[in-house]
């Protein structure tokens, strides 16, 4: 039997250990056994993938874009969560502010999350540019907490929302996962509303280098995709990791981020 596949993941919550131990156990005894290594940030994880310390990286969209850049497109995405294929950024403001779209942000204050968060900083700026707002036309309040984790902890987005509640900002850009976590607009009745929703884009994926042969990756992906929401042994892991189903990657969903990284001159090391 071949050595287990080593998957890297960034530890953004204590539950990462439970999740990966659960996934590792799910693969135990199959032809595609695996183990995992946890990193404190995505920069370190991508370095380790490039060095061959890990076979697969559970990457955010920004980590994927960086890996593509550093391998000249030789890396490949193996799978993602169903939720990763339809990620969005939500622009929210206090209810009743009367904002009707991104253009209305001209001259106002927009709170953004960590500068390395695709959903709460990089893509929001890209969407503003697409809406014809030049640099400086919107007053950006950047909240850089947990840099290195690409916004996974959601803390900076919560702080951005707090800035709106505290009247330090007129609006905030957050990921749809944070919007769901606060209960959309239902738990804070009359407090927050979405005034613009971005088009869908792709979020995380399992990234591999050419060094990982198909012979090894294919059985692993097949077994991953066989995880079943209706199986009580699999359900807790899927719930904790925030998906119902693992799916094939939707690569066109990364185009907006590639453009954004290029427009904003995002450095290669986050």
């Amino acid at each position: 039997m071949s050595a287990p596949l080593i998957v890297g993941s960034v530890a953004y919550t204590p539950n990462v250990v439970t999740i990966w131990e659960g996934i590792r156990d799910y693969f135990a005894g199959t032809p595609a056994e695996m183990d995992f290594v946890l990193f404190s940030n995505y920069g370190r994880q991508v370095d380790s993938l490039l060095e061959g310390t890990i076979d697969l990286a559970w990457n955010t969209n920004l980590a994927w874009v960086r890996t593509v850049a550093q391998t000249n497109g030789a890396c490949r995405a193996l799978a993602m969560r169903d939720t990763d294929t339809m990620f969005r950024t939500m622009f929210v403001a206090r209810a009743g502010t009367g904002l009707g779209g991104l253009e209305d942000l001209k001259g106002r204050r927009l709170a953004l999350g960590s500068r390395d968060s695709a959903q709460a900083a990089i893509l929001p700026v890209h969407f503003l540019t697409r809406a014809g707002l030049a640099e400086g036309e919107v007053d950006l309040l950047r909240i850089d907490s947990d840099v290195g984790k690409h916004g996974d902890t959601g803390r900076s987005e919560l702080d951005a929302l707090r800035a709106v509640l505290d009247d330090k900002a007129d609006a905030a850009a957050i990921g749809i996962n944070t919007w769901e976590a606060i209960g959309r607009d239902e738990l804070m009745p009359g407090a927050m509303e979405v005034f613009w929703e971005s088009p869908i884009y792709s979020h995380c994926n399992f990234t591999a280098l050419p060094a990982l042969t198909e012979e090894r990756s294919v059985p692993w992906v097949e077994h991953l995709l066989a995880m079943d929401w209706d199986d009580p042994r699999h359900r807790p892991i899927l719930e904790m990791e925030g998906l119902r189903r693992w799916v094939a990657p939707r690569l066109e969903g990364y185009e907006s981020l590639f453009e954004a990284v290029q427009e904003q001159g995002i450095g290669p090391r986050w």
Binding site: T13, N15, T153, G154, L161, R162
Partner: peptide, 22 residues
């Protein structure tokens, strides 16, 4: 007036807690 920040506190605090812990 409700303190809407409570929901943000909940999300933030619970994110740092292991499953099953309080």
């Amino acid at each position: 007036m409700v303190n809407h920040g409570i929901v943000l506190d909940l999300v933030e605090r619970l994110a740092t807690v292991a499953d099953g812990a309080t």
